[in-house]
Each structure stands twice: as C-alpha cells, then as structure tokens.
Deep mutational scan, measured.
Amino acid sequence: NRLGIIYEIQGMKAVVLTSEGEFLIIRRRKDMKVGQQVSFENEDIYNV
C-alpha cells in the first residue's frame, strides 16, 4: 500500500500528494475528500 493526501478531485480521478513529494493521479473512490489521507495500490495509479 502507498499513502497520499488528496489534493484535488476531477471526475473519476483524484490527484494525491505522496510523502515523497510526488503528485499522482489515482482512481477515485466515492468516500474520498480533499485533504484526506488515503492508501492506494500501484494498480490504482493512472499512467500519464
């Protein structure tokens, strides 16, 4: 599992900021809110 803070939500995608200072786009889940810490898997990351 990886951890990140939700920075922005766009439709079915969420932008998270990881503890390494990396911004990633992941698959959104219904319970996500901006500012929330979430765990996610590598499979949830969109390749940009």
Rank of each mutant, 00 (worst) to 15 (best):
G21C: 12
R28T: 13
Y7L: 14
G35S: 03
Q10G: 07
S39N: 13
L24G: 01
K30M: 15
D44A: 02
G4C: 04
I26F: 01
I6G: 00
M32V: 05
G21W: 04
T18E: 02
G4K: 00
I9C: 05
F40Y: 08
Q36A: 09
V15A: 06
D44L: 03
R2I: 08
E43T: 04
K13E: 05
E22A: 14
Y7P: 00
G21F: 05
N1F: 15
I45T: 02
L17Y: 13
G21N: 08
E8V: 13
M12A: 09
I6Q: 00
K13F: 13
K13A: 04
V15G: 05
E20I: 09
E20Y: 07
N42V: 12
R27D: 02
G35Q: 03
E8K: 13
V16L: 04
V34R: 05
S39E: 13
D44C: 08
L3A: 10
A14W: 06
N1V: 13
K13M: 06
R2Y: 11
A14V: 07
Y46H: 08
N1K: 10
I5S: 03
E20M: 08
V34I: 10
M12D: 15
F40K: 01
Q37I: 11
I26D: 00
Y46N: 06
K30E: 15
N47I: 11
N47Y: 08
V48W: 05
Q37P: 07
N42Q: 10
E20T: 14
V34W: 05
G21I: 02
M32K: 01
Q10V: 11
F40W: 11
E43V: 03
V38D: 00
N1W: 12
D44H: 03
E43N: 07
G4M: 02
F40S: 02
M32C: 04
A14G: 01
D31L: 12
I25A: 09
E8A: 14
I6Y: 00
L3W: 13
V48H: 12
I26A: 01
E20C: 12
K33V: 09
L3F: 13
V15E: 02
I25Q: 07
M32I: 04
I45G: 05
L24K: 04
L17W: 15
Q36V: 09
D44N: 02
A14Q: 01
E43Q: 04
G11R: 09
E20P: 04
K30L: 15
V16A: 02
E41L: 12
V15D: 01
I45F: 03
V34E: 04
V48M: 09
I6R: 00
V48K: 09
L17M: 13
S19C: 13
E20K: 08
R27G: 03
E41R: 15
I26T: 01
G4T: 01
L17S: 04
I26Q: 01
K30G: 15
R27A: 05
V16C: 05
I26R: 01
G21H: 03
S39V: 12
I6V: 14
I5V: 12
I9L: 07
R28N: 07
M12W: 15
F40E: 01
K30P: 13
I45H: 03
I26H: 01
N47H: 13
V16P: 00
M32T: 05
Y7K: 10
G4D: 01
K33N: 08
Q36L: 07
Q10N: 09
V48E: 12
T18A: 04
L3N: 12
N47F: 08
K33L: 07
